[in-house]
Design a protein around this nucleic acid. Structure first.
Lengths: 263, 263
DNA sequence: TGCCGGCATTGACGCAGATCAATAAAAACG
DNA sequence: CGTTTTTATTGATCTGCGTCAATGCCGGCA
């Protein structure tokens, strides 16, 4: 295979929008290419305007910058607009454990609603921008806009479901299955966002992957090598090309995400 | 220690209510001893009546009976009223993987909201009763009652947080820490419900515990024996008495649930 | 452009926990 | 009650993956 079959999908600002293009980075939800994945699902343009009023678009974060830290008081939940964000906890000894990778259109900070305090820290994996959704405003507005309430509940439910799936994965699957599941899952999410699910760039390090999957870095590395040797994918550094999606999903068991059994 | 230091806390209908006592088991939320844990938190009595109208109390389930099955369409979420319920998925080969144990006051079925279909099955671990909360009604009513919306969001957020904690546990801790965390967590929840957090009866089998924690039954059994030998607890079959809660929590690491570091 | 520091890969080795197998102790049931 | 079935415990063995260690590679920076 040739080098350029690895298409680099930067995911940094999708489909023709550009940060700061028209109005200092304030692309309204109306015009956002993610609006069929994110909070705006099912809202008419009047409601979208109301939603826009509680949202602030912040300057992009650079790789490694914090979006918030565990222990900060909840003021907003965040929708990823471009790039990607990881969330993680630090154990008492200081080693971090990754709890999630978040792609454009996904909400971050939902775990803070119960206590009013973010239980995890969140940092950018690459240059990323987010929409800051004032939480008070969101609570208010979703009392007034049925579609917004629906979508908020749906997104929270989806997160519950996803986390449970991860529990099953971590509790029940061997290392190979875990990595296969993660890759299949990322592929699917990349696909939903309009990019090729077969070739993408992993924005997180091997360390992050290992931490998320409960594996040692070395194991992750070996697995990539093995999966490549078996012809399931090509990998070189962070570039991944999936050559046999079906076989990969079968390796992952039922657990890619959700119900649909592998076949 | 003597046999009767193992107080059996049946948890079956708390504090003087009895199924069928006054009106065929229909204890109103107003009079339910769980109302400071469950959906009613923060509602006045007028709102409680409205909530009551979308709730149906069903006949108790017996051990092993299904509350719902994975794949069933979502019609209601359920609040445990007495007893305990487990939720689990079945892998393609038929072996089940437990995703949660649910005590009185906890909500079940929140993972179904995203897709409209329950992603897991739910069965009673012992004789248990639940309140069936019509989901349509709940959506409607939480648009009208701010406190209800708040509490629903809070409960969902708590579940997200709990599941993430489990991910950290399963991904990062050794077998002993996992069991210690589960026991500490159950102890805390039993305590919140007004019972002694030091002596309780596990309603689930060793198999269920193993499945939930990602361990073989044999390992679970050995761990109980070991923890007992080390003087952390006494166990005989399902009766557990925690002798050194602090040391147990320290074994569990940060991960019992949530922020508060172990000391 | 060349040096440096972090990230990734590969190999060797040991151990925690899975698996297999047997027994014991409770429940379940007629 | 005695019989059967399920559940729990304990022991012996085996193995997947963690750990340690060494090397290679890329990207950043002067």
């Amino acid at each position: 295979m040739t080098a350029d079959s690895f298409a680099v999908h930067s995911m940094t600002v999708s489909r023709g929008e550009r940060y700061g293009a028209a109005c200092g980075g304030n692309v309204a939800c109306q015009d956002c290419s993610l609006h069929q994945l994110c909070l705006p699902v099912g809202l008419d343009s009047e409601d979208l305007e109301r939603l826009d009023r509680i949202i602030r678009r912040r300057r992009p974060l650079r790789r490694g910058e914090y979006l918030f830290r565990a222990g900060d008081p909840l003021r907003a939940v965040y929708a990823v607009r471009s790039g990607s964000i990881k969330t993680y906890t630090c154990s008492s000894e200081g080693d971090e454990h990754v709890t999630g990778f978040h792609l454009p259109g996904e909400l971050i900070g939902l775990g803070a609603i119960a206590t009013g305090v973010y239980p995890r820290s969140a940092r950018a994996l690459e240059t990323s921008s987010v929409c800051e959704v004032a939480y008070e405003g969101l609570e208010d507005l979703s009392m007034k806009i049925r579609g917004l309430q629906r979508q908020l509940l749906r997104l929270m439910s989806r997160e519950i479901h996803h986390d449970e799936t991860m529990m099953v994965l971590l509790g029940g699957m061997a290392a190979e299955g875990r990595l296969a599941a993660l890759l299949s899952n990322i592929a699917a999410r990349v696909g939903e966002r309009g990019f090729s699910p077969h070739a993408f760039r992993l924005s997180m390090s091997r360390n992050d992957i290992g931490s998320y999957l409960g594996l040692a870095v070395e194991t992750v590395s070996r697995l990539f090598t093995r999966l490549q040797a078996e012809g399931l994918l090509n990998v070189q550094r962070k570039q991944v090309m999936i050559r046999d999606p079906d076989r990969l999903r079968r390796l992952a068991g039922v657990c890619v995400d959700g119900l649909p059994p592998p076949r």
